[in-house]
Structures are given as C-alpha cells and as structure tokens.
Amino acid sequence: MKPLTESSELIAELFAIDGTEARYGQTLHGREGETLSDRRGGARAIAGRPWTVIPMLADGRPDSAHRSAGHSLVLNAQGIGLECDVLEWRWPAAFAIGVQNGHGVMEYAGVDVCHTTNLAAGRVRIGGKFAGRAHDLIQPQVLTPTYHPETMTFRLPFADELYQAWQEAGVLQAVWLDRVQLCPRCQGLPTFRPGCRCCGSARVRNDRLIHHFACAHVGLVADFETPDGLACPKCRTDCLVIGSDYEYHAGPHHCLDCHWTESELEQVGQCVRCGLRFPGHQAHVLELTGYHVDRLDPLAFLQAP
C-alpha cells in the first residue's frame, strides 16, 4: 500500500482527474452536467482508517463471503476512495462500508461504485459515492414499517429476507419499535373506545354518588336532590354542604342496552375491516420491529475549514 503522502496522486487516479470534465462513463452515478470540480469542491479528508467492505449482490443481499478489509485514501461528504483486498472476484456496483467510530461502534454507509482500479497482489482501488442501492437500504424511512391503508397492514418496503440478511451481516440491528393492537380475527386495524364490559355498547350511563358523612349513606345524587337543595334520604338532614357534610363518588356505569352494571368501562375494539367487536384485552398484539443502523457521517471525518 502506498503511503498517505502520495494520496493526491491516488485521488487523481481514483477519480480520473485530468483537469477536464469527467466523462459520464467513468462514473456510474455522476449527474449530467456536473463537473469533477463541482463534485470535489467541498472539504475532503485523507484518512487511513481500516474499513470493512461488504459487497452487495444484484438482488440486494450482502455478499458476506467476499467481505473484505480496506483502507480509506480519501473521504469527503459525497464519496470515498479506498484501497482494499480483493480476491479474484468481479467487483460489484454497490457495497456497504463500515468503520469503527471513537466509541467502538461500527458505522456504515452505502456506496455506489464509480471507478475501480486493479492493483497488484490482489488489491483494488475503488472510488465511490454515498448513493445508490446500498445507500438507499440504510435510510431511516426504509428501516421502519409503515401502515399501508390499502392492505391495512404494517410493512417494510423491502422483503423481510433482505433485512435479515443485512442483519446477519452485522450492518442492521433489529429494534422493537411499537406495539400495535389488531383485530383478533382478521388482523385489521380496529378503533377503540370505552364501552360496556358485557355487550360492548357505548350507550352507557354513569351515575354519581353522594357519601353523606353523618349517617354513612351512599346514594345517587338524584336521591339527594330536593327543591331546597341537597337532603339525605336516609337521615333527612338537609342543607348539606360539600366537604363538611358530603363528598361525591363516581358511581356505577349502567349499560342502556343490556342493563349491565360496572364500576369501570372496558376498552372495546371494533375492527374497521371485518367489523368484529371485541374486548380490548383480546386484541391481537403485533410487535412492530424495525431496523437500526449506525450511519456513517462523513462530515465527522472532515476538519472544519
């Protein structure tokens, strides 16, 4: 491997710097009309850190068998140039790279290959941009399940096998995100509201009670009401004063449909897909699992201007 002092030459080699505009064919993801000077205008770092390189197969899965180690030669906010060991194998169009940060945590980025140069002794220099399929795979929006109203399900954008393969490769970590209550029959999304524990009806009347301290009578507020104010129906004491003579209690809930009496209402679910009404505690609980990746921040490697 060449010393880092020679890196300017390497950079020129990697990105095919010839002082003119780069040809489109030299870069896989260069944009039309973008010049090399545009792309390289920002701050850049020359970092000799060890990197883990995981090639990405055409179907999106990681090729763990050809995982290799490399050293970065140059890095900026848009791309990276690195040199790595490669066995006799054709280099893919995209790969994931990982590097250990100062806290010992591996951080990953997705790179689209722009340029490769085979060196002697099974080494290769690669120039790539932080873009493309591998880069897309580690974006937060594709790592979190989202609700699809047309199917009423929570899904990830890609197949589960793909995520699992990248998890096994050590790039992604499965994380528990949320717990969602679903219809126990069709797994559709239900609505929840308080209702009668017996029949599930929302037509419930709640009575308030009064506790009269002097005689310990507890009865409905309506029983205490007289034209002259509140009077205890048991001991006939009138002109009751709240706090010193009586206090209110939440009373029983009466279902107007089935006449059930209960102290607390139950959360009743109703599926918006199949219409099933069920007690809240019978809901099917779906553990929503997403994925997390410690994403590489190239700017963290760059010195402030």
Binding site: F213, V218, E247
Partner: peptide
C-alpha cells in the same frame, strides 16, 4: 379517600 367501613360497605350496594 378513606370514608370509613360503614360507607365503604354502603358504597358497594348500588352495584
């Protein structure tokens, strides 16, 4: 709040 045993027993009667 504690209301005494008598009222606690009476409190259950409406149920």
């Amino acid at each position: 709040d504690r209301g005494g045993k008598s009222s606690a027993l009476n409190f259950a009667l409406p149920y």
